[in-house]
Write a protein that binds this DNA or RNA. Structure first.
Length: 934
RNA sequence: UGGGCUGUAGCUCAGUGGGAGAGCACCACCUUGACACGGUGGGGGUCGUUGGUUCAAUCCCAAUCAGCCCAACCA
């Protein structure tokens, strides 16, 4: 890249893409498998987005935060690896392709084409093709964000290497007894036709009904039990799912429930079906709820399943996988669940079993992917026995080997991990890692192996007798291995040795259980060490009203649109500024526009520098011999006070940014950069430097040096946050040095003139200057007092007025003489002439007083302002002084304050009181004189 | 039911044991040789409520109200 003219204003579209290409072409993002001697590795693995995904604000946020950390550490010299990749996203992707296939035509029976019409092999081919066609979309979108990912290492959860890792893990866990196949109640999505894990079912509020159904009671011999009044005894049972009664195995009551003591040992007749069911006693039953009697359907309810096991009840499975009642359902067999419910309710009513129906609000589980009601059904599935894996994973966080930030999430983590249930990992899908288990047609034994076995493990039957498990693994199974599988595991690669454990995991809190916890478990189990040291959890991005963004609500703010309109840097800066927020980030485009203005400000500050070295303004200046940085460090004591001030303020900013990045307080760092750039560098330093620049000669050259130095440091400091605009501006500056980075040397790459590989600015103690800071603060308060006078009196900026000043000390006099031109320039006043202290006030003068240093300014009002306005201004000031005084006097009049508060504080308050008092007396005199004028 | 979070200016949010800040919005003035994506000045808050600890509380503690999130076996 070559130095070039800057455009009129910040126009991100004109340079963002070419800058990214420049970085990528020159291999700036690449890490080295082996760090240079003394070089630290720093690795973050990307939370892999769905391969078919489209970049949304959540991605934009997490990738901005990660890129900031990565770019910062890279500039600090680390061997930095940010590892990209995508997730195959089992159900999501399969559903997408199924929909596409359905649109293509109809099958022989006239229905839209389904995956079954294609067959497994063809369908999976189609998904791969889809992946090839659409998989690069998200990658290109990440590039638009400026993400400095090492694309040479891009991975995919179903690529060859990761598939090897998945099989390896499966086989080992199986051999260790931590994976088993078992028949259990699981959540089933009838639309997706697959089992779901507990986490993939979203409990959702629904209005439903509460059906109260009478079950007639009979004795051991099957005769109806009668009540005292000779009516038949019955148990009323309330349910929200009447269709499940077909699968009832018992009715449960609480053992201590006095109302039902007489029914112990009796049975009930299941309505419509006629089956006799035992009445069982179980303390699980809540006596307060409903009638206190509970129907037990072990095949279709998680709790009933447990109760059924306790009482050895038969399991009657009446709800089939295709969403219809099974043959066990007798007359209702073949009906869809909803139809069955209607029919059953109707028959119950007709036959007099329905006691009453109430409205009932309750939660039902919906499939996370398709919002279909997920039904608990009994089914044979593969599970991970989780407790032995969870234990060390809990310990790792307890011991601080892994730290969560914000720390409060650790509690959430413990809460879940301590109550964790076995993980159902099999999915009845075609897109995913097919489970490496083979069933023997001869002995029915299971052989689990890394590759297709040549014979049955149990009966040595040949391969031809073996049939591979059709199910695939839960997508999150492969994601759980991500931090080590992407680095080459199970092979012992250099990358794995260098970068595992990774440094930081940055992600949303919504996937702590899905992903973070599982990575910790798998990492510890297979690598013998945690997968990362720190877990940073960010908030959810919502719309400006705090509502979740969703396509159906139409409130989605599309990051790509925002980037196109305002640029990637303003978006990144906005997100960084908001990163400190607790759980929700309310994003509005207004904010982005605000930070676009900030970019424009930075742009124009740089343009200001360029103007100063333009031929019209005195022409180019040579870089100091030995380099600018060295010149600054050597010369800073000789410089004008505002130069010393800005250097000192810069040090303070460097310190804040560095410390905040270290603590992952990116918003604090961004805030400091914004404040410094706009309100110190632009508002004051550039303004203060204009006089010296006009003066020309040595002072102009010095000013150009400091401007260039501070600008350079600032661009470096800001680069991790706003990589594009900083690189673009930096490339325009003179005296750029080629960056020499250890990683590039390791990779055998030449040095490169780029900002992104420059060293991160360092704090220089010797450049801090409290004296200069104090002096500029004084100038600022004087200038602000004049501006206030002008503003409150509505004096046009064009009107210059003269001011007399009266110093309270020799130092104050010297100070003012030294800085009078600056003060005049900044506050646009004309003459500034001194009067000897004690000179009597002239009629028609008003006064401005400054405490540090002690100075009085007298302004002749005649012909300048309306006296009434100035009276108002002075009155306001006195009012404020009175308020301050009342507060301090109140404090100082308290005996307990004087005796118990720190002496230094008491002293400070006393001094302040004196100061305020004398100021007040002066202003009152001024007020008196002003009033006498009228 | 359990766990957690939040409550500060009109809006979005920082913040601290010694009389509250920013950005945006608002009002007034200003096209000044980097920038109107700009400059200058200004208005605006009993820091959810009530108690307690303290010389001193917006900040620490307790209670309470309001809103939100997560986990869960109330059919």
């Amino acid at each position: 890249m070559h130095s070039h003219e800057l455009g009129k204003a910040f126009e991100p579209q004109s340079f963002e893409n070419s800058i990214y290409e420049f970085w990528e072409k020159n291999r700036c993002f690449e890490a080295s498998d082996q760090s240079a001697p003394g070089q630290e590795p720093f690795c973050i693995v990307i939370p892999p987005p769905n391969v078919t995904g489209v970049l949304h604000m959540g991605h934009a946020l997490t990738n901005t935060l990660q890129d900031i950390l990565i770019r910062w550490r890279r500039m600090k010299g680390d061997n930095t690896l940010w590892l990209p990749g995508t997730d195959h996203a089992g159900i999501a992707t399969q559903t997408l392709v199924e929909k596409a296939v359905a649109k293509e035509g109809k099958n022989a029976s006239g229905r839209p084409l389904s995956r079954h019409d294609l067959g497994r092999e063809k369908f999976v081919e189609r998904v791969w093709k889809w992946k090839e066609d659409h998989g690069s979309q998200i990658k290109n979108q990440l590039k638009k964000m400026g993400s400095s990912l090492d694309w040479t290492r891009e991975r995919f959860t179903m690529d060859e290497g990761l598939s090897v890792a998945v099989r390896e893990v499966f086989v080992r866990l199986y051999q260790e007894g931590l994976i088993y196949r078992g028949e259990r109640v699981i959540n089933w999505c009838p639309r997706c036709q697959t089992a779901l894990s507990d986490l993939e079912v979203v409990p959702t509020d629904r209005k439903g009904s509460f059906w109260h159904i009478a079950y007639r009671v009979v004795d051991e011999s099957g005769k109806p039990v009668l009540n005292a009044d000779q009516t038949p005894a019955q148990l009323v049972i309330a349910t929200t799912r009447p269709e499940t009664l077909l699968g009832d195995s018992a009715v449960a009551i609480h053992p201590d429930d006095e109302r039902y003591f007489h029914l112990h040992g009796k049975k009930v007749i299941l309505p419509l079906v006629g089956r006799q069911l035992p009445i069982i006693l179980d303390a699980y039953v809540d006596r307060e709820f409903g009638s206190g009697a509970l129907k037990i359907t072990p095949a279709h309810d998680f709790n009933d399943y447990e109760i059924g096991k306790r009482h050895d009840l038969p399991i009657v499975s009446v709800m089939g996988k295709e969403g219809r009642v099974t043959a066990e359902g007798g007359a209702f067999a073949g009906m869809k669940f909803a139809e069955a419910r209607e029919a059953i309710v109707q028959q119950l009513q007709e036959q007099g079993f329905l006691v009453r129906v109430e409205d009932h609000a309750h939660k039902i589980g919906l499939c996370q992917r398709c919002d279909t009601v997920a039904e608990p059904i009994i089914s044979k599935q593969w599970f991970v026995k989780i407790a032995p894996l969870a234990e060390p994973a809990i310990a790792a966080v307890q011991s601080g080997k892994i730290e969560f930030s914000p720390k409060s999430w650790e509690k959430t983590y413990f809460e879940w991990m301590n109550h964790i249930r076995d993980w159902c990992i099999s999915r009845q899908l075609w897109w995913g890692h097919q489970i490496p288990a083979w069933y023997c047609g001869r002995c029915e034994g299971i052989s689990v192996a890394r590759e297709t076995p040549t014979q049955c493990d149990h009966c040595q039957a040949p391969t031809s007798e073996l049939r591979q498990e059709e199910d695939v693994l839960d997508t999150w199974f492969s994601s759980a291995l991500w931090p080590f599988s992407t680095l080459g595991w199970p092979q012992s690669t250099d990358a794995l040795k260098t970068f595992y454990p990774t440094a930081i995991l940055e992600t949303g809190f919504d996937i702590i259980f899905f992903w973070v916890a599982r990575m910790i478990m798998m990492g510890i189990h297979f690598m013998g060490d945690v997968p990362f040291r720190k877990v940073y959890l960010h908030a959810m991005v919502r719309d400006e009203k705090g509502e979740k963004m969703s396509k159906s609500k139409g409130n989605v703010i599309d990051p790509l649109t925002v980037i196109q309109q305002h640029g990637a840097d303003p978006l990144r800066f906005t997100l960084a500024m908001m990163a400190g927020q607790g759980r929700d980030i309310k994003l509005s485009v207004d904010r982005v526009e605000g930070y676009r203005a900030f970019c424009n400000k930075l742009w124009n500050a740089t343009k200001f520098f360029h103007l100063q070295i333009h031929p019209d303004q005195g022409g180019p200046v040579e870089e100091p011999a030995g380099g600018l940085a060295r010149w600054v460090l050597e010369q800073h004591q000789e410089l004008l006070v505002h130069h010393q001030w800005i250097l000192s303020r810069l040090q303070s900013t460097i310190q804040t940014v560095e410390a905040s990045l270290e603590k992952f307080e990116l918003n604090v760092a961004a805030q400091a950069l914004y404040q410094f750039t706009w309100h110190e560098f632009c508002d004051w330093y550039i303004e203060l430097s204009k006089l010296a620049l006009r003066e020309g000669g040595e002072r102009r050259v010095q000013t150009i040096y400091i401007l260039r130095y501070v600008l350079g440091e600032l661009l470096q400091l800001m680069h991790p946050f706003m990589p594009f605009v900083t690189e673009e501006l930096w490339q325009s500056l003179p005296w750029r040095a080629a960056a020499s980075h250890a990683t590039r040397k390791q990779l055998g790459l030449p040095d490169l003139t780029t900002l992104m590989l420059q060293p991160f600015p360092q704090f220089h103690e010797k450049l801090t200057h409290p004296g200069a800071e104090q002096m500029i603060a004084s100038i600022q308060s004087i200038v602000e007092a004049f501006r206030n006078f002008r503003g409150e009196n509505n004096i046009s900026p064009k009107v210059e007025f003269s001011v007399k000043y009266c110093p309270g000390s020799a130092e104050a006099d010297a100070f003012l003489r030294a800085h009078s031109t600056q003060i005049q320039f900044m506050s646009r006043i004309g003459n500034l002439v001194s009067v000897t202290p004690g000179t009597p006030e002239v009629s028609g003068e008003s006064m401005i007083r400054i405490s540090h240093p002690p100075l009085e300014f007298r302004i002749q009002l005649q012909g300048l302002v309306n006296v009434d306005e100035e009276v108002k201004r002075v009155e306001k000031e006195i009012e404020k002084l009175n308020g301050d005084l009342a507060f301090i006097e109140g404090k100082l009049s308290q005996e307990t304050f004087l005796s118990r508060a720190p002496a230094a504080l008491v002293e400070k308050e006393r001094a302040r009181q004196g100061d305020l008092l004398s100021k007040k007396l002066e202003m009152e005199k001024v007020l008196g004189r002003l009033r006498s004028l009228k």
